[in-house]
Deep mutational scan, measured.
Amino acid sequence: LVRYRTISKIPQITLNFVDLKGDPFLASPTSDREIIAPKIKERTHNVTEKVTQVLSLGADVLPEYKLQAPRIHRWTILHYSPFKAVWDWLILLLVIYTAVFTPYSAAFLLKETEEGPPATECGYACQPLAVVDLIVDIMFIVDILINFRTTYVNANEEVVSHPGRIAVHYFKGWFLIDMVAAIPFDLLIFGSGSEELIGLLKTARLLRLVRVARKLDRYSEYGAAVLFLLMCTFALIAHWLACIWYAIGNMEQPHMDSRIGWLHNLGDQIGKPYNSSGLGGPSIKDKYVTALYFTFSSLTSVGFGNVSPNTNSEKIFSICVMLIGSLMYASIFGNVSAIIQRLYSGTARYHTQMLRVREFIRFHQIPNPLRQRLEEYFQHAWSYTNGIDMNAVLKGFPECLQADICLHLNRSLLQHCKPFRGATKGCLRALAMKFKTTHAPPGDTLVHAGDLLTALYFISRGSIEILRGDVVVAILGKNDIFGEPLNLYARPGKSNGDVRALTYCDLHKIHR
C-alpha cells in the first residue's frame, strides 16, 4: 500500500512540481520508500527539464536528425535550378540546329562534286560548318556529364541527390541515346576521305529529338503553341524528305545512260545542264529549293507536275512521300480545326451564355430598361472574369491554397485601402477568403433606401454616388468604403439613402 501511494504521487509531482519531503505519510521509514524516492526525484528532475525545454521552444527539443539540413553532394545540380533551365534551352537550340543542318550536310555532301578544292585539302579548321559541328559534339558530351550530376524525382516524389543513384537512373534511361548522339564521328573518321560515311553517321544526332519531343509535351495545353509546333514538325519532315529526294537524284545521276532524272530535267529547265562528264548542272541553292518544293507539294497532295519522278527509285520514294503525307494530314492537320476551336472556345461560351440571357429575357418578357441593365451587367461581368467562376475553380483546392490565391487576387485593395494598413498577414488572409466580388454598370442602383444592410462594401474600381431623395450626399471612388460596420450592432440596419454607380464599378463586399 505504501508503495502504491508513493507511485500514485508521481503525476502530481510531474505537473505541480511538489516535493515529496513535505508529505508526512511518505516520510515513514520503510525500505521500499527509501529505494523508490531517489528514482522519483530523478524522474521528476528529468520531466521538469523536458517541460522547461518545451515551454522555452528551444531548438534542442527536436531530434538531432530533424535539425540537420538535407545534404547535397558537391557538384550536384538541382533539376529545378536556373542554371539547369538555361542549359536545357541551350541544348534545345543545338538539337534544332542539328535537326536542320545534319540531314542537309549528309545529303548535299554525298558524292558532291561542286567546283573547288576537296575538304581534305583545305583542312578541318577552315570549314565553318565542321567547326560548328565540333562545338555541338562537345556541348552534347558536356550535357552527358551534367546529367550524371543532376537530381531527379523518383516514384515516391522524392528528390534524389545521391550521385550513385543518379548515375544508375541515367544509365537506365537516356544515357545510350545521348551517348550515340554525342559521338564525334568527324574526329574519329577525319582524314579518311569518307565524307559520305561521316554525313550518314552524323544523322545519329537526330535521336535527341525524342527527348525534345517529350520536353515539349508540357506545352500541349496551349493551343497556339501546339499549332506552332505542328507546323514546325511538318516543315521539318518536309526538309528531311527534300534532303533524301536530292540524295536519290544525286546518286543516280552519274550512272544513268539517259538523262531522265529530276536533276537533269531541272538543269535543262533553268539552262544549267550537266555536261557529258557529269559536272556542271544547277547550283546547290536551286537543287535544295526545288527538292523542298517537290516534297511540300507531295505532302499537301497538290502535285503540280513541273517536278516529277521519272526513275524507279524516284517513283518509289514519291509513293512513300504520299503515304507520309496522308498520315500527316490525319495526325496534324486533322487537329488544326480542334485547336482553332479551342482557341476561340471563350468567344463561343460568351455567345452561348448571351443567347441564354436573351432567351430568358424573351421568355419572361423583361421590360426594355431592365433588359438593357441585365445585358450590360452580363457584358461587364464577362469582360472582368472571362466567364470563369472563381468560386467553382477554387473549390477543388485546399483552404490554405485558397487563402493564398484570394490574398493575391485582392492584393491591390488590401495594400491601398486604409482600414487594412497594419493588419497582420493572417488577418488579411482571413479577410480575403470572405470577400465576394460584384460588378455594376453605370446607372445601376446597388442599394435602395430602406434596404437591409448586411454587408460592408469596398470599391475596387469606378465611382458611385450616394443620394437622399434627389440630393447627392457624397461621391465615392476607388478604395472608399460604404455599408454597415460589421458586428457593431446586434441587428442589421437599414439604408438611409440610395447608392448608384456612376461608372463601371468593381466592388468587394463582406457579409455579416
Rank of each mutant, 00 (worst) to 15 (best):
Y377L: 01
S161T: 12
Y65D: 07
K172I: 04
S220C: 13
W89N: 01
I91L: 01
M251P: 01
G191E: 06
Q341E: 06
S326N: 01
V289R: 01
E157W: 10
A242E: 01
E64V: 05
M139P: 01
W174P: 04
L216C: 09
R218S: 05
C122T: 01
F420K: 01
I91E: 01
G191P: 11
V307F: 01
E252K: 03
V142L: 10
T113L: 03
L355D: 13
A119Y: 07
P128S: 05
K172Y: 06
I138V: 07
C406T: 04
R342G: 10
R356H: 12
S277F: 04
S192L: 05
V321C: 03
W262A: 01
G271W: 01
G422P: 04
V132K: 01
I91M: 02
E359T: 03
L413H: 01
K395Y: 09
L413V: 10
E195Q: 15
I72A: 14
H408W: 04
I77S: 01
W89C: 03
M256K: 15
L93V: 12
W89G: 04
K215D: 03
L129N: 05
L145W: 03
V336R: 02
I198N: 09
E221T: 06
F296R: 01
F360K: 01
T150V: 06
I284Q: 03
Q269Y: 01
S331M: 10
L409G: 02
R356N: 13
D143H: 01
S194D: 09
D286R: 01
M433C: 10
E314M: 01
E195T: 15
I198E: 04
S105D: 02
L109N: 07
N156R: 09
K111Y: 09
V307G: 01
A213I: 05
R74D: 06
K395P: 03
L446N: 01
H351G: 03
N368T: 10
G271S: 01
M433G: 04
R356V: 06
L263S: 01
P163Y: 05
N275I: 01
P309G: 01
K172T: 08
H169G: 04
R342A: 06
I91G: 01
L394R: 02
L197P: 04
S308Q: 01
V100H: 01
V307P: 01
V95G: 01
K202V: 01
E195K: 08
G173L: 01
S383N: 10
Y384H: 14
M179P: 01
S283C: 01
L188Q: 06
I91D: 01
Y329N: 15
E115N: 03
N156P: 04
K425V: 07
R342K: 04
G325F: 01
F83H: 15
L200D: 01
P273V: 01
I189R: 14
N250W: 06
V132A: 05
N154L: 05
V302M: 03
L78C: 04
G123N: 15
V132M: 14
G346Y: 06
V212K: 03
Y219S: 05
Q127H: 06
C400N: 10
S276W: 01
W382H: 04
P369W: 03
Y219V: 13
G278A: 03
V136E: 01
L370N: 01
F294Y: 03
T445S: 06
F175D: 01
G303D: 01
S276R: 04
F171T: 05
E196T: 13
D186Q: 10
M322K: 02
N386W: 04
L292H: 01
G271Y: 02
V132R: 01
L327T: 01
L431Y: 01
L197D: 03
T290I: 01
Y65S: 08
S331V: 12
P118S: 11
C400A: 10
Q68F: 13
T385D: 07
L187N: 15
C122K: 01
Y293S: 01
P282D: 01
D257A: 11
M251R: 04
P117L: 12
F333M: 05
L187G: 12
F420C: 01
I144P: 01
M139Q: 02
S258I: 07
P184H: 01
I324A: 01
P117V: 06
Y97I: 01
Y246S: 01
L374G: 03
H162E: 09
M328K: 03
I332H: 03
F140C: 01
E195G: 14
F190H: 09
Q415I: 12
L110T: 15
H239V: 01
A69S: 07
R358K: 09
G281M: 01
L129I: 03
F101G: 01
S192V: 07
V159P: 04
F234N: 01
L110R: 15
P369F: 03
H448I: 04
L266M: 03
L176Q: 03
C126N: 01
A130L: 01
W89M: 03
L323R: 01
A291Q: 01
E157V: 13
N335F: 04
L90M: 10
L134V: 07
H351V: 03
G223Y: 05
C417P: 03
T120I: 04
V142T: 05
V160Q: 06
W245M: 01
I340M: 07
L188G: 11
V336N: 03
A432E: 03
C417Q: 10
V226T: 13
P163W: 12
P118R: 15
Y97E: 01
G173K: 04
D444A: 09
R71E: 13
R349K: 09
R259G: 15
D88T: 01
L109V: 04
L370Y: 01
F175L: 08
I237N: 01
S258F: 15
L370S: 01
G280I: 01
F294E: 01
H162P: 01
A99Y: 01
Y219A: 09
P70R: 05
F363N: 04
F185R: 04
Q68V: 09
T290E: 01
D286G: 01
D186I: 09
M256S: 15
L299F: 01
T300S: 03
S283D: 10
G173E: 01
T311C: 01
M390G: 05
P70N: 11
V307K: 01
Y350Q: 07
Y222K: 04
K418S: 09
A449R: 09
D257V: 05
G164F: 14
F363W: 08
M433H: 03
F175Y: 01
M231A: 01
G223A: 08
F363V: 10
I339Y: 03
T98I: 08
S283G: 01
C122D: 01
R356F: 15
A291K: 01
Q365H: 14
E252M: 01
H351Q: 03
A107P: 01
L236G: 01
G396Q: 15
E375F: 09
V159K: 01
M390C: 10
A181V: 01
P309N: 01
Q353G: 08
A430R: 09
T113S: 07
T445I: 08
L355P: 01
H264C: 03
T311N: 01
G223H: 09
M231L: 05
G191R: 13
M139A: 11
K215I: 01
T437E: 05
N386E: 04
F108D: 01
L206D: 01
M251S: 10
V86Y: 02
I388A: 04
T233L: 14
E115Q: 06
K172C: 09
A432Q: 01
Y170Q: 01
K285A: 13
Y170F: 01
A213D: 04
L145A: 08
R259L: 01
R208Q: 09
K84R: 01
A106Q: 15
P441Y: 04
R218K: 11
I244R: 01
C122L: 01
Y274S: 01
P441D: 06
V321F: 03
N154S: 14
I339D: 01
Y293E: 01
L200Q: 03
R259S: 15
L446I: 14
W245Y: 01
N368A: 10
S345V: 11
L227D: 01
E221M: 04
S326T: 15
D286M: 01
